[in-house]
């Protein structure tokens, strides 16, 4: 199925192309726009973007795979990102991650069957002072404990049901 870049993203690409002297510079902001819409970047989207910018597909793929924050698989509604870097690790992140894996019955990197949660371990979120940290999509949840993760899951489920 051919991928169509949305009108909104196309407009944004055109705007950026005028600002940057090199079209490669448009790659990352354009990818962000695309990810905002679908939650992830499918292979066909890389193709379409390459074609639009007249950059080889391989270049787009190199960028997408370099930055771990570009998702290459469909994501759950809530993306749980457990920081596993040093500060968070010392503060118990490993136990929390295991707890979440058990609770959600998925492994790190997987998505629950109902499409609600995707669980990832990520590098330092830049919030070491409040370790351990879990980011849910773009919101930080700080000074986490195992009990607090249970509450967090319940809240997120409730949020989903109320929509």
């Amino acid at each position: 199925m051919a991928y169509k870049i949305s009108e909104r993203t196309l407009a944004e690409i055109d705007r950026l192309l005028k600002i940057y002297p090199q079209k490669e510079a448009v790659l990352i902001p354009a990818l962000h726009e695309m990810q905002k819409e679908a939650g992830w970047i499918p292979e066909e989207a890389m193709d379409a973007l390459g074609a639009r910018l007249n950059i080889p597909y391989a270049r787009v793929k190199g960028v997408v795979t370099f930055y771990t924050m570009f998702n290459r698989l469909p994501m759950g509604r809530f993306h749980l990102q457990v920081c596993r870097n040093i500060s968070c690790h010392f503060a118990g992140a490993a136990g929390m991650l295991r707890h979440l894996e058990d609770k959600l019955n998925i492994k790190e990197g997987e998505t629950t069957e109902d499409g609600l949660f995707t669980l990832s371990a990520v590098e330092c979120l830049g919030s070491c002072g409040t370790a351990p940290v879990i980011a849910v999509n773009e919101t930080y949840h700080e000074n986490m404990t195992v009990e607090k993760t249970d509450r967090l899951l319940a809240e997120l489920r409730a949020e989903n049901n109320s929509d």
Partner: peptide, 27 residues
Amino acid sequence: VRFCDEVTRTGELTVSGRNDASFIDMK
């Protein structure tokens, strides 16, 4: 990668991923 980028200008190859997870990749 540079050969395909600069000599033939066909750009088939790229480095995919980063650090010890990186490898030469193509479509």
